[in-house]
């Protein structure tokens, strides 16, 4: 039996459109739910003061520091490493079994649950390398965790740069590295930035990989060997231990707004960049 294409078309529109609307509704519901419960406690005082009584009272200032510093250090380590690796894989090696194995490996790593990275970081950085629970150990763990994402997104972006640009650059007497620097990386930049933004998002929201490696100290860190607590970990602890529901939602609301601001800024930067290059 054959169904009239006009009906299937109609059905498709309804199903696809319905799915989209459902997803948007769920997203909106989550955000509104958290903001509604959290925003009442968020004010300047909450953002700028230290927590008291394990976070039952006071603000979340040290966790803001932790949330900023861990991803920043992690990305400072992972971005150059990941981008250079992807350049090497896509520009300096021929397609061999080895590169295929490397690519397969990175894909597998990208899919591993973050708690595994947390345990690895704990055993390797915290214990074996004796870094203790620290910014350093936490950032390195996050770096290892986001590296596959950065490598793969950068590689895709680099491969998408038209081949002819490489040829033209070489034909004008440029070396391989000059071509990478002046033509390939600038043209791949939007894609690379997308990977970095994804990674920042993942790092900011991460708890499992961080709690085992950066610890959960509520003090303001002064060196790279101090333990810190991120907002995500703070939220987790406040909610899990039943310390303070209000402050937990306050922290979550702050986190959501921060992520929104970061993403909007990234979009804005990217559009400006693309507009400038034409």
């Amino acid at each position: 039996m054959r169904i009239n294409p006009r009906h299937t078309q109609k059905g498709a529109v309804i199903i696809l459109g319905g799915a989209t609307i459902l997803v948007l509704l769920i997203l909106a519901f989550i955000i509104i739910f958290i903001l509604e419960k959290g925003l009442p406690v968020v004010n300047l005082q909450f953002l700028s003061s230290k927590p008291r009584d394990l976070g039952r009272a006071g603000g979340i200032f040290p966790t803001i520091i932790g949330t900023i510093i861990l991803p920043v250090v992690a990305l400072l380590i992972a971005t150059p490493l990941g981008v250079f690796t992807s350049v090497y894989l896509s520009e300096y090696t021929k397609e061999t079994t080895l590169t295929k194995v490397i690519r397969f490996g990175t894909d597998c790593l990208a899919g591993i649950p973050s708690i595994i990275f947390g345990l690895f970081g704990y055993i390797f950085f915290v214990i074996t390398l004796q870094m203790g629970w620290s910014i350093l150990a936490g950032s390195l763990t996050l770096a290892v965790m986001v590296l596959p994402t950065i490598i793969r997104t950068s590689e895709e972006a680099i491969r998408a740069v038209p081949k002819v640009y490489r040829e033209v650059s070489f034909s004008l007497g440029a070396s391989g590295w000059q071509t990478v620097k002046k033509v390939i990386l600038p043209n791949a930049l939007p894609g690379i930035v997308t990977g970095v933004m994804l990674s920042i998002g993942r790092s900011i929201g991460e708890t499992a990989a961080v709690i085992f490696t950066a610890g959960s100290s509520l003090r303001i860190p002064t060196t790279a060997f101090d333990s810190v607590r991120t907002m995500a970990v703070h939220f987790y602890i406040l909610a899990r231990e039943g310390i303070s529901q209000e402050n937990a939602y306050g922290t979550a609301a702050t986190l959501i707004i921060a992520v929104l601001i970061i993403n909007l800024t990234a979009y804005w930067l990217m559009n400006r960049f693309i507009a400038r290059r034409g």
Partner: peptide, 21 residues
Amino acid sequence: FQRPNPFPLSIYENVVYGLKV
């Protein structure tokens, strides 16, 4: 080349590309 293939840069940057490298 067969197809015009300026870099996605300004006209000036295209012309001086070879000098810069």
